[in-house]
Design a protein around this nucleic acid. Structure first.
Length: 791
RNA sequence: GCCGAAGUGGCGGAAUUGGCAGACGCGAUGGACUCAAAAUCCAUUGCCCUCCGGGGCGUGUGGGUUCGAUUCCCACCUUCGGCACCA
């Protein structure tokens, strides 16, 4: 028997797969009816090397890829690099090189790491965001969104990261900090580009019901979109002869509105105070309060000033004072509220601070009081009734508000796709014509951020003729957020070399939506929301024929080092070093055997050595079995049954349950059984089965053993099918309970009647001892499993 | 504050539809092989008691439903995650 040499075997089969392009997915032919499966894991940022978190992610995807291939699917399993953007650029700054050079070096390193892990990737479809052949179409899509009115430029308060020196999307501010670098984010007013994702808020919410995603992820998106159903109610300011609208989710409390509040940034402030005695004072407050940094504003100590004006409550005609206070936000609703201190905590605090009246309108039993003709109605029913009554008088309408904001995606950084527009003094903002794409990212010496976009100081890039009038124009100097690149990369994989269009609809429709997507839950409200938005928009324009990109989603857990997420450069845990030391197969088994793949793993190398031992033992036991004669077809021994049971368990675990640790345990059990029965007539069959079902986990050693068993091309061989007849046991262990406690176990033939089973139970001495002559109250029988005697 | 997820041996974890708690692996203990070690193999291994037959307890805590609960229900504790002056 040859000694098991992981490195020799792994290099050998990796070379074969490379030569054959074994995992290349064939393009769909028009009219073919192949079963297809699109398996995708989130693509890596090439800001360093792979770490064990990637190894978990991609090994899991690899098991699914092999399993689906071998169960008759044409599987698309591509790979690419999210190579534009902050992660890669910051890596370049850290290492003191140019982003292009650093990025491409990292891509080469990661590619090599991926090959050494033996992952079944279609290497002919590699896509990198920074390649002109890719960002050409990112720019093309930008123009399309612009043309469709789903992209706009606006001066708005945005999140500025003082460390990364760029604007951040709301999605990437966590607890007021930049999610990448942790710096406290500042509010700044800047002209920025936005995707109008809010236009799809409802669909993004409703269509969650159509996809198979973890509930917690749907919850995150639901919270983030933050839909509130309510009403818009008009309050009249008689002196000025104007109406002010407020949004409320509690129209049932309208009779309890005792004052009215306007946000300090609201343009209404000026209108309201014009000509009042304290106008200057109010304006001064509004100016200071409106400019206050967000963190300070969240201090919750209520501040505000009375405007001197009154609004009329449309339900009862009461005149209530209008205040300006910074606890009301301009961004949400209408920037003005009716305040009901009796039933809103914030309004209550404000009323307490400024001695404003409080009128309760809902009693303890949940019905309305002090509410005129609505008294006695149940609060929820009253909501509709009051809005109905008001709308008949033209003073209210049903309304919906969202928390979701438009996606700000322009970045004041170098390493990204240039935004293809030109500013012209005569024509304004002019899109670059499609025929002039791509707008190439110029090579600049000094790409570092300095508070203004680095491209702005490149005169050669900036100065361009206006595409519309031919006069002097200036290019947009901001670049696109890397999340724009990753919002459509999975579509490009379907048609990666298309030079005429981002993709051909026929190809995308054949593969999409993605059957299984795997990636970190940290992308729940960013990438996963943006991508859904992109697909919905493109579907509306007829570019593709589906409305959701990711049909099934799974989040792998983190690989933690000392309780923290692993980063790309942790000493001693580089996949390369581990492969050098233990071999790829052992690493692959190790990372999936640690526990359920959606659970965090505390990194410790201690678990790897046992997996190496298992692979060696597996190797030895299969070699011993190979010396045995072929197992006869339909061989029926306990070992044969164990093998069939293993097939059934592994298949069900991967296919239906989507768990990856227990199949390894099942194969270990089979190998243990086999090692105890080396002469069993089913020994060879058991060995073949173990090799076959372990192949998705350890493709190299299994391929080698498959060859040793006289077979070839396991990666292309059909997945084994368990013989149903041999899954049924003819003898079962019957559990005997007395009063619900296990007292004995006996082996009985399968399929006995209830009466026969009770007979066996009564015959047990141990059962008799516990029944101890007591009266049988009741006997519960679970056929082939259990008898419970209650005395 | 609102919403959600999770809590099982010394450790990672298993138990799929309410039916044998602890599969599989680690670690530990004892033994075989060896001059010795490594590797390998065998046995034991939830806790407590034991006259070695067995008995009691046990899945975060306290209740409940049930013949029977890690699994279902209620309350609570702890940890983690999302949202949060969002009207």
């Amino acid at each position: 028997m040859d000694r098991y040499d992981a490195h020799e075997i792994e290099a050998k089969w990796q070379a074969v797969w490379e030569d054959e392009q074994a995992f290349h997915a064939a393009d769909p032919e028009p009219g073919d009816d192949k079963a297809r499966f699109y398996m995708l894991e989130m693509l890596p940022y090439p800001s360093g090397q792979l770490h064990m978190g990637h190894v978990l992610n991609y090994t899991m995807g690899d098991v699914v890829t092999h399993f689906r291939r071998r169960t008759g699917h044409e599987v698309l399993r591509p790979m690419g690099f999210d190579s534009f953007g902050l992660p890669a650029e910051n890596a370049a700054i850290r290492e003191g090189g140019h982003p292009l050079e650093i990025t491409e070096r990292n891509i080469a390193t990661i590619t090599n790491q991926m090959r050494r892990m033996g992952w079944a990737i279609d290497w002919q479809r590699v896509v990198s965001a920074h390649e002109t052949t890719y960002y050409h179409w990112t720019q093309w899509l930008f123009l399309k969104f612009l043309e469709k009115g789903l992209v706009y430029r606006k001066e708005a308060p945005v999140n500025w990261c003082p460390n990364d020196q760029t604007v951040l999307a709301n999605e990437h501010v966590v607890d007021g900090k930049c999610w990448r670098c942790g710096a406290v984010v500042e509010a700044r007013n800047m002209a920025q580009w936005f995707f109008k994702i809010t236009a799809y808020a409802d669909q993004l919410l409703d269509d969650l019901a159509t996809i198979d995603w973890p509930e917690r992820t749907k919850k995150i998106q639901t919270n983030w979109i933050g839909r509130s159903d309510g009403a818009e109610v008009l309050f009249r300011v008689d002196e000025l002869d104007i109406d002010i609208a407020v949004f409320t989710t509690r129209p049932d409390t309208l009779f309890g509105a005792t004052f009215f509040v306007v946000a300090p940034e609201s343009p209404l402030v000026d209108t309201l105070v014009d000509g009042t005695a304290d106008a200057d004072e109010v304006r001064a407050y509004a100016r200071v309060a409106g400019a206050r940094p967000t963190e300070e504003r969240e201090q919750r100590e209520k501040t505000g000033v009375f405007t001197g004006r009154y609004a009329t409550n449309p339900v009862n005609g009461e005149r209530i004072p209008i205040w300006v206070a910074d606890y009301v936000l301009m961004e949400y609703g209408t920037g003005a509220i009716m305040a009901v201190p009796a039933h809103d905590e914030r309004d209550a605090e404000f009323a307490a601070a400024f001695a404003l009246p409080v009128v309760a309108v809902i009693s303890e039993d949940g019905t309305l009081v002090n509410s005129g003709e609505f008294n006695g109605q149940e609060a929820n029913a009253a909501k509709g009734a009051i809005v109905q009554w008001l709308s008949e008088h033209g003073r209210a309408k049903q309304a919906i508000n969202y928390r979701l904001r438009d996606w700000s995606f322009s970045r004041q950084r170098y390493w990204g796709a240039p935004i293809p527009v030109v500013y012209c003094e005569t024509c304004g903002i002019v899109p670059v014509p499609e025929s002039d794409l791509p707008v190439l990212l110029p090579e600049v010496e000094d790409y570092r951020p300095k508070g203004k976009p680095p491209l702005a100081s490149n005169e050669e890039f900036m100065n361009v003729a206006c595409p519309s009038c031919g006069g002097a124009g200036r290019r947009e100097a901001d670049t696109m957020d890397t999340f724009v690149d990753s919002s459509w990369y999975y579509l490009r994989y379907c048609d990666p070399h298309n030079a005429e269009a981002p993709f051909e609809r026929r190809l995308v429709d054949a593969w999409m939506p993605i059957d299984q997507y795997i990636g970190g839950i940290d992308h729940a409200k960013g990438h996963l929301l943006y991508s859904r938005f992109f697909v919905k928009a493109m579907n509306d324009w007829g570019m593709l024929g589906f409305r959701e990109p990711f049909q099934r989603l799974f989040h792998q857990g983190w690989v933690l080092l000392d309780g923290r997420k692993m980063s790309k450069s942790q000493a001693g845990v580089s996949p390369d070093e581990l492969v050098d030391q233990f071999g790829a197969d052992a690493i692959r088994i190790y990372i999936l055997f640690q526990g359920p793949a959606d659970q965090d793993i505390n990194w410790s190398p201690d678990g790897i050595e046992p997996m190496v031992r298992f692979v060696r033992r597996f190797w030895r036991v299969v070699h011993e079995a190979a010396a045995q004669p072929e197992s006869p077809a339909g061989v029926d021994t306990a070992l044969a049954r164990k093998a069939h049971e293993t097939i059934a368990r592994v298949t069900d675990d991967i296919d239906r349950r989507f768990v990856f640790n227990t199949p390894i345990a099942a194969v270990m059990e089979l190998v243990n059984e086999l090692s105890k029965k080396p002469d069993d007539p089913a020994a060879r069959f058991a060995a073949e089965t173990a090799v076959s079902v372990l192949q998705p986990y350890a493709p190299h050693v299994c391929e080698e053993l498959w060859g040793m068993l006289g077979k070839s091309r396991l990666w292309d061989s059909p997945w084994p099918v368990a013989d149903e007849a041999l899954l049924v046991h003819d003898e079962v262990e019957l559990v005997l309970q007395v009063n619900g406690k296990v007292r004995d176990r006996v082996r009985v033939p399968a399929g006995l009647s209830d009466d026969e089973l009770i007979e066996r139970a009564r015959a047990s001495e141990k059962v008799q001892a516990h029944v101890n002559g007591g009266d049988e109250q009741r006997v519960i029988v679970v056929p082939d499993k259990l008898v419970n005697i209650v005395v």
